Computed example of a mutant assay.
Amino acid sequence: MSTGHLTIDLSALAENWRALDAMTDVETAAVVKANGYGMGSGVVARTLARAGARRFFVAVAEEGAAVREALGPGPMIAVLSGHMDGDADLIRDHDLTPMLNSVDQVLRHVESLPRRSFGIQLDTGMNRLGLEPDEWAALRDVALKQMPVLIMSHLACADEPDHFMNQRQLTAFLEMTAGIDVPRSLAATGGLLLGKDYHFDVTRPGIGLYGGRPYENAKPVVTLDLPVAQIREVAAGESVGYGNTWTAQRPSRIATLAAGYADGLFRALSPGIKLYDGETPYPIAGRISMDLITVDVTEMDPERKPEVLTLMNDIQGVDALADVAGTIGYELLTQLSQRYKRSYIE
């Protein structure tokens, strides 16, 4: 094996969806954007459809087309960026449902694809996507006559349960949708965990399906094994890697692994993370470079010559790595390289 091996546990993925679904009395959708958070949108969507999901959310129409090809007809595939200029053919040919975000998008959709399915996204305070309250007030009656299939908004601070913004956005969403007989959706993973007031008619978990916070009880979905290219002896006083940031304090053994920041393993991960041989951890020695990682395996039995060491597993999950890198699990998962061989287990 010359590249890393990403193993994706589809049974854990499905179990995470079922567990989140069981927390509500409403429909549970699934977010499969960014190529299924780096895991393969087609395989992920099929797995979640078998688990019971009937609505899927993607970021852009091109992603929606790929998911439709994987799922076939039937499930709703919602496009969060809405109906962008030039999307009409993809929306029509793949039966996608754009979440319209602006007056221009509403006009574009109604004019180019009359009587085609669409939803509305409202801005309740995040100031990123969606119709603002004054726009919605002016457009509401006209838009509702076109029969949208969903009205949604998105929470800015749902991963912080006590943040004032959650209640502020909930109040705004209730005010903007009062008296409307259309299914509503406000909660992604974090919002779902905030409780029933945020559930409305459809929840749409994303990161929680893939093993990440804020769903602390999520089952790990990803294991990442990295191939050992070489194990070498290093004398006390010799340094390893760029910048001489690690110097051997004793005669040491260094394993060089074939992976690096070109594979989505951020250089900032260099201090503090471990590579595992089974359940035994070994620290990184020096900086992560573009294609290589060096690991101090001095404590390993010198007769043992493992073919791989494991970076991501049940012990050191995606959030533990993200914490070291000063980022979030979403970023780490979606940056996982296409160089990795991917395999799926049921």
Rank of each mutant, 00 (worst) to 15 (best):
I293Y: 09
L333I: 11
M99D: 01
L131T: 05
V234F: 02
G329S: 05
P281L: 11
E216V: 11
D123L: 00
P114Q: 04
V103I: 03
A268I: 10
A229P: 04
T203C: 08
E175T: 14
L80Q: 00
F173M: 01
N166H: 01
G72N: 04
M312K: 07
A322H: 04
E27K: 14
E238V: 11
T298V: 11
Q230Y: 12
S343Q: 13
R204D: 05
R342I: 09
E111Y: 02
E15K: 13
E63H: 09
V43K: 12
Y330L: 15
T203R: 03
E299A: 15
D225S: 15
D263K: 13
V103N: 02
L209T: 05
P133M: 08
Y330K: 10
M147L: 15
L10M: 14
V182M: 10
V26W: 10
T245C: 04
I207R: 07
L269N: 08
C157T: 09
L13V: 07
V324D: 07
Y282G: 02
R232M: 10
A138K: 12
N16S: 05
E279W: 13
G64T: 00
S153Y: 03
L224R: 04
L107N: 15
M147N: 15
V44W: 02
C157A: 14
K274G: 01
A45D: 03
P302I: 06
N35S: 10
N244Y: 10
D159E: 12
T298S: 14
A88C: 01
D291V: 06
G272Q: 05
H163Q: 14
M152W: 05
L150C: 08
R54M: 11
E175L: 09
K341F: 15
L186A: 04
A285G: 06
G74F: 07
I91Y: 01
G36D: 00
Q335N: 08
T28R: 11
L209F: 06
